[in-house]
Amino acid sequence: MPAKNDPPDLIKRVRRGEHAAASRALSLVVNEDAVADVLAKDFFKCSGVAQKLGVCGPPGAGKSTLLGRLIARYRAEKIKVGALMVDPSSSVSGGAFLGDRLRVMEHATDPGVFMRSLASRGMIGGLTHAIFGAIHVLEALGCRKILVETVGTGQDEVDIASVVDTVLCVTTPAMGDEIQAMKAGAMEIGDIFVVNKADLSGADRAVSALRGALGLGRSAGQEPQAWGPPVVATSASSGEGVAELAEGVEAHWRYLKDSGEGRARLKKQHAAELRFWMQRRMIQAALDRVSDKNLEDLLALRTDPASLGRKLMRAR
């Protein structure tokens, strides 16, 4: 039997659809293990086939419950689904409370669904450094819809719009006032807006407030956008509105494929992933080369930070 982390064996098994292998591969990729690059080299070949959906919004909006509903719809059509659910790591302990599975456990034993909880591990903005690599594992596993749940929009280091193809922004009627506040970040990146908990009062008002805010973004005389983000009211707990939401998601996917936008987005995603990789590896490598002697040299004024920095960046 090959070793547990043997890359060729893992790759073969992931591509065969084995969940155990995908799970192990995900850990190696997320932990930036020595063999992660070998795995990623192969898995990347599968990129761009699946529709990647970002589900973002504040805690408690119903993202995970909605995720469960969308998964159920895809499963009814026998589509293999992957889900990555990101929660923040504690900045104090480095640990994390990953509780999104609570709402999707009905799919736990479905062999056509693979779900993984991820901690942000120090990255601000609701995503994790390993998000691209994690997505590629699910692509290689054969998932054709990949859902990424995240709090917020990740705008600080990389925004969710440079990670996925279709961004769902989820709010609730109770967050009516926050709609104004969110316009700066989310209004620009949302492809579909969801007012969840439509069973609560104020849903209609929230929907029209959102539509109004979205309309404001377009000034008179401007060309009509090829894709006007729809606003959908859902009740994830009862399932109402989920069909309409799923149709919106499909319509966006068709739009991406039929227009040049899909290709442009994929290119943007690859650019973000490349930038990430370079930042993580090159800067970290240079930082690791900083020695106590370097600092002593600075103290003794034998060199200066810029000269030293340039030298350390050039070193191999």
Binding site: G94, G95, A96, F97, G99, L102
Partner: peptide, 8 residues
């Protein structure tokens, strides 16, 4: 410092 997955 653990990453804890809670399933309910």
């Amino acid at each position: 410092g653990y990453e804890v997955i809670y399933t309910g």
